[in-house]
Design a protein around this nucleic acid. Structure first.
Lengths: 208, 208
DNA sequence: ACTGTTAGGATACGACTGTATCCATTCGAA
DNA sequence: TTCGAATGGATACAGTCGTATCCTAACAGT
């Protein structure tokens, strides 16, 4: 088994082991040896495929960001063609909230990383730079919806989008802390979207 | 200096040293020896006044909650008599957002604690149980404002309050992560309050 | 078949962790 | 004045941490 190992695959396995630990026992429970045990390999292997613990942590952060991005793009992409603007927002925001076991675990890990990045410049460099893309995307969408007459003209699209994203983050934190159920969080988002778009149906009515 | 020491005062000093470390270098940087160094005492003293590290961490969590509570009560109390309902909400939500250096440090520590509590049952028992009081308080206020005609009748006070608190939490996270300035966060809150109460002035007009 | 690189097992190092113990003060009460 | 509790300095212990080193296989290219 020695020669010719797929390094990327190996690193992926180790990164997933890391995220499994981080999401269930927290980032402070992540150690080289724990990752090795979780992945079923020896400590040397972890050392071999990642030069540093920092490189390992960065890999986990990046993977987490990629997962979030994938989830949002997937939902938004599937919804873009057939739904109303409101449906697109519901899909994207619903993808941010933890909606199943895996996304809840990922949100846990993400929260742990985000918090660690607040006091660790090395992690901040990796993770606190990217999240403007989603805000821009939604702002473009909302502006278009407003020009199409689906949203009242006195709304400020940029502020509305910022509000929705911050709200989704706040709700995510409360869901993770078991202060609110997933359904309650979705209900709050829906309530807010009702006021933004008007209490319309989710699906666009078929053209007559 | 030996005999007759004020234990509560000692514990307060040590707790503050702990929070200073947690808010600037993160909760994982908090160790018995670091606290001792920060407080300018020996390791033994830390051991003497706190049986456990857990007891120490719990003390920090509790103190943090007390500080938040104090801040909110102070602002809300000062505002209750002379401001409009909207002014009360602005005051309370403004007290949740980090508005100066100290409250920003406290928010940092709080975030670290909250995240740690998500994966540490011992901390969860201390900190993830209390925060309903503020929600109830604000809901009562908003319901009253609605009955007085200051808020449109089709709003649901409980949902509106939940939204505002989750929004404030989400905005706090973004401010701590330097993705938004404090002023930008306040502007978003104000924008939201404008829609809830109508774009009225902050101060209640004098009775004629 | 030989050789050098790749892949990992085994182990060790120094630093740091929470906790425990031993001991010397110092003061209040008797 | 004596004694015992309160206070805290000094040190030790057993783990765990990230990292480094040593060494042995196994394969690819020659």
């Amino acid at each position: 088994m020695p020669r010719q190992v797929d390094h990327d695959e190996r690193r992926r396995q180790l990164t997933e082991a890391l995220l499994r630990i981080a999401s269930t026992r927290g980032l402070q429970a992540v150690s080289m040896r724990e990752i090795a045990a979780e992945a079923g390999v020896s400590l040397r292997v972890v050392q071999y495929y990642f030069t540093n613990k920092l490189a390992l942590l960065e890999s986990g952060f990046t993977e987490l960001g990629a997962r979030m991005d994938r989830r949002v793009k997937q939902r938004a992409g599937a919804a873009a063609g057939e739904l109303t603007p409101r449906g697109v927002f519901a899909a994207v925001l619903g993808a941010i909230l933890p909606f199943d076991e895996q996304s809840k675990l990922d949100s846990m890990a993400w929260t742990a990383y985000y918090t660690a990045a607040l006091t660790d410049p090395a992690l901040a460099a990796v993770g606190l730079t990217l999240p403007n893309a989603l805000e821009d995307f939604l702002t473009v969408r909302l502006t278009a919806a407003q020009q199409a007459g689906d949203v009242a003209s006195d709304r400020d699209p940029r502020t509305e989008v910022a509000t929705l994203l911050a709200l989704a983050n706040g709700l995510t934190a409360s869901v993770l802390g078991r202060q609110r159920s997933h359904e309650a969080a979705v209900a709050i988002i829906d309530y807010h979207l009702d006021r933004l778009f008007g209490p319309a149906a989710t699906r666009r009515p078929p053209p007559d």
